[in-house]
Design a protein around this nucleic acid. Structure first.
Lengths: 167, 167
DNA sequence: GCATTAAAGTTTCAAATGAAACTACTTTTT
DNA sequence: AAAAAGTAGTTTCATTTGAAACTTTAATGC
């Protein structure tokens, strides 16, 4: 954010006593992030849906199970930032479409380990290059150093946003 | 993003011929942005809703009209990244809560210029410091130079995401 | 100038979402 | 070991969302 813009958006910089009477939305970080992630999600969701009949929760679960076969729904939740309702529904659809299998756990029959079927692994193998490609395009004009810095910024914002959840 | 992680996420870096069999979700930019903006939006939405009975579309419209009184719904749409249905509903609620007024345009009676009432201006004056404060907290550990660089990155990503909308 | 097409907002309807209740099972307490 | 409390995942239900149809008014074509 340019300094001048920050000043415009910052009550204290205007005056300690005067209230700021407006906020410039296009420079307000929460708005910008929501807009950006919305555009990206819509693009990807359209692609996944059209080409694979896959929703974003389904795609996340498939991606996770690719590297972590045997996860349970509960374990997926924090890794995919999905609630248990979304997971339950996504898993149901993935089983129906033949991409996922459930194996009830020996030790705890409430839970089931989840595995990609052959078909599921094929879907993953097909979708990964598209996802990568999209990410690469997004970052096409970023230098490796800039990518590293963006990574760092996002990690710090993520940590801070988590801290600020309840306040 | 650290170089090693990019390599792990990048098909071509692994091999020109081998397919990559998994994608590490926590480093996938679209996932990270969705997660981050989701956390931030939920935090703010809860605050606005609890303290002002205001939804995010309503808040955006109030913020915009603060600096641009007299905008019409159509004009608000691109500025607030809201569709006309959301705007119609948000405006309806804002009028009901006494924060907004409509003035049918002289020249075109399909359209109406929108204005904050006194109450609407008061709401804006009360909510701006909270929004600023939240943004300041998010960026608390960023130096001015880093903030400037983040701004630059977000602008470039936004432009690129727009370009990639239909492909 | 009348008919057609287009635009601004609104309403409707169907799908997506998520909180709360529920079911099936497991763990803890006494 | 029976009762109580807790957990994994599912279902229900009420709300949110957005696309498409609609209404009213304006612009364009003939």
């Amino acid at each position: 954010m340019r300094k001048m813009d920050r000043v415009l958006n910052n009550v204290k910089a205007v005056s300690m006593n005067e209230m700021q009477r407006s906020l410039y939305l296009p420079r307000f970080l929460p708005y910008r992030l929501t807009k950006l992630s919305g555009m990206i999600s819509r693009s990807l969701a359209a692609k996944y849906s059209k080409m694979f009949d896959l929703t974003i929760p389904e795609w996340r679960i498939v991606a996770l199970l690719g590297s972590n076969p045997g996860l349970t729904a509960r374990e997926i939740a924090p890794l995919a930032s999905l609630d248990k309702v979304s997971i339950s529904r996504a898993v149901e659809r993935l089983i129906k479409s033949g991409r996922l299998e459930k194996k009830t756990l020996e030790g705890d029959r409430r839970s089931a380990a989840l595995f990609l079927t052959q078909a599921g692994q094929l879907t993953l193998a097909e979708i990964i290059p598209l996802a990568q490609d999209y990410e690469n395009k997004l970052l096409a004009e970023f230098s490796p150093e800039e990518i590293e810095q963006l990574d760092n910024f996002l990690n710090r914002l993520d940590t801070k946003a988590e801290e600020l959840q309840n306040c």
